[in-house]
Nucleic acid binder design. Structure first.
Lengths: 189, 189, 189, 189
DNA sequence: TATGAATGAGGTTTCATTCAT
DNA sequence: CATGAATGAAACCTCATTCAT
């Protein structure tokens, strides 16, 4: 349907341009041009530039979680499930560098603060939080606050993705596997 | 001398405002006002806004490294030296949240890319790179590319500092110690 | 019939919104929403925003004159007929403040100029002009140009209506009567 | 001094253009061009378009009151002082039609409401209010609320000025005198 | 007849930078 | 060295109007 097409074209254009040039370096007029719509059209779908950015982030986050859910096997061991999540996270990021760049910029901006706060304090009973909860109860990981667990688990992964995208290193499956395993070692009691 | 005073006032103002409002949300006029100088004066010390930002980052990085060098004992064990670096990094960041916010924003912006590239590929034979080099040669840490080592070592620390500053967790000495140790565990072969 | 219903809904919406927010502050989309029609629908009934405004004014003017004609008795004395007109004018305005606000805004805008010119220079042989003509011939009022007569007769009434609507005074029947009489005194030779 | 020159040029340009085209029909860019300054310059002197309009009105009002004070003789009779005010009001308006048009548009806009309310309810112990107070105490004019007195006194004068400016009538000294006297008659008990 | 998504010119405002003083 | 008024390009956003359905 036309409706969704234009909306998606705008989000796609916003993601690409912001990933490359930052929020500040990306005028609405540029987004419109890249999306192939008139400038005013964006404002039928999004109330403001901020709202567009917010919506773009929400979509990317959803896609990311979706790709993590793919192949996620509830019956596997806790460790195996963690390794799966780590692998998928990294591979998603490096397959679509744009998404990764956008998400990182979002998190380090006024926009991202509220989003992050909501998740961490939040009830958001999602896949990952549940896994860590289960792991902690079984004594498989350290007993530390959830944000610290998240930091140990994913902090390194975000950085290596960034370095890969910027050409500082070249990630392959083996290197990814080693790094994710190292993160698991950081979590172990 | 006057000269340096004004220059420092401008840098200080830039750091504070950008930490709070981002690059985009910080006009030169605002920096001038907070620094107590005229708008034009900034251009005597810095060629452009970009140059001011780079200079501000360079200063903060230097201060950060300086605080890490404080109490760094070449005679300690490799592990102990790493723990020192990690502790100092975290405490520096949470003592001056402004600095931390500025640095993070810098790294996640067009500005930061070149800087990071230079460091990683670079000849920059600094304290930290040397330590890791030594550790690897002694077989104390995994044999992985330097950027991956950096990521495992400091990625989690950056994230917990951010969470602390945003009030998602409250770091105390014990929690910092545990987290830094966990990072070391990630590095061990 | 549907036709007229929608048309009237649009005019009503336009009147209300413009009365409150002015011509400039009232987008067509807002009129459409308040009227419960689609934006494009307005253009089936009115060629443009200007045309809608003119039509709205024309309707209100007609309603105003109609309410003046109500109870107007050709057999009464000239003075009594003038008092009737004044009373009805004021009470119409304060009963429907929206109408009054719209009309005043119309008169003080590029739209209103042409309308007013037409009336004053015009042959418009209407009720009020006729009354003044008759009064002048009988020597009951000053021999002044018609616009001056209109100004003396109605200028004060417009202002007190505005003040009443804005809450600066509270008009009651007695006060209205006194004011209309005062206007008549201004007209007397 | 330059400062005041540019500021005044902007106000002058704003007044002329708004008088002709209305608030809505007068873009800031047009004001800048007419004033011979850059678009951004206006914002050094006025915080916004609204602030500029407000400042323009304030200046015109002050000029109007000043011209009324000219030749105002405290020792004259109450009636003579009223006639003076009326004459000066009309002649000021028709000498500078732009000012008159601006002021009228201002009064009939959201801007004007607050201004008018302040004056009427207000403590504003100005020349004119004082005169009416004195007149009432001496029993020279009707005992009516101040806004009604103002309406009777000046309502007709505003209208004849508008008609003159639009070419519906041609005011001369005699006609002005007669009209002002008629207003006085409206006020007499 | 009715819809409302789409258009794009044009509005207000911001801000990095310059330059006469 | 220092000032801050001035610049003007460019940003975000609005809205009267059109047109395919």
């Amino acid at each position: 349907m036309e409706n969704t097409d234009k909306r998606m074209a705008v989000i796609q254009a916003a993601m690409e341009l912001i990933a490359e040039n930052g929020f500040h370096g990306t005028p609405m007029s540029g987004i419109a041009k890249r999306a192939g719509v008139a400038a005013g059209t964006i404002y039928h779908y999004f109330e403001s530039k901020d709202a567009l950015i917010e919506a773009t982030y929400a979509l990317l986050e959803e896609q990311l979680l979706e790709s993590i859910r793919q192949g996620y096997c509830e019956d596997s061991s806790v460790q195996e499930r963690f390794l799966h999540i780590g692998r998928m996270l990294v591979s998603s990021f490096i397959v679509f560098p744009m998404k990764s760049r956008f998400i990182e910029q979002f998190h380090n901006s006024p926009y991202g603060v509220a989003s992050r706060r909501e998740r961490m304090l939040g009830k958001k009973n999602d896949l990952i939080s549940s896994l860590f909860e289960e792991a902690r109860q079984q004594g498989l990981i350290k007993d530390l606050p959830l944000p610290v667990i998240f930091a140990l688990a994913f902090g390194p992964l975000l950085l290596i993705c960034r370095d890969h995208i910027f050409g500082l290193i070249t990630l392959d499956d083996l290197l990814i596997e080693k790094t994710v395993e190292a993160c698991w070692n950081a979590l172990k009691p």
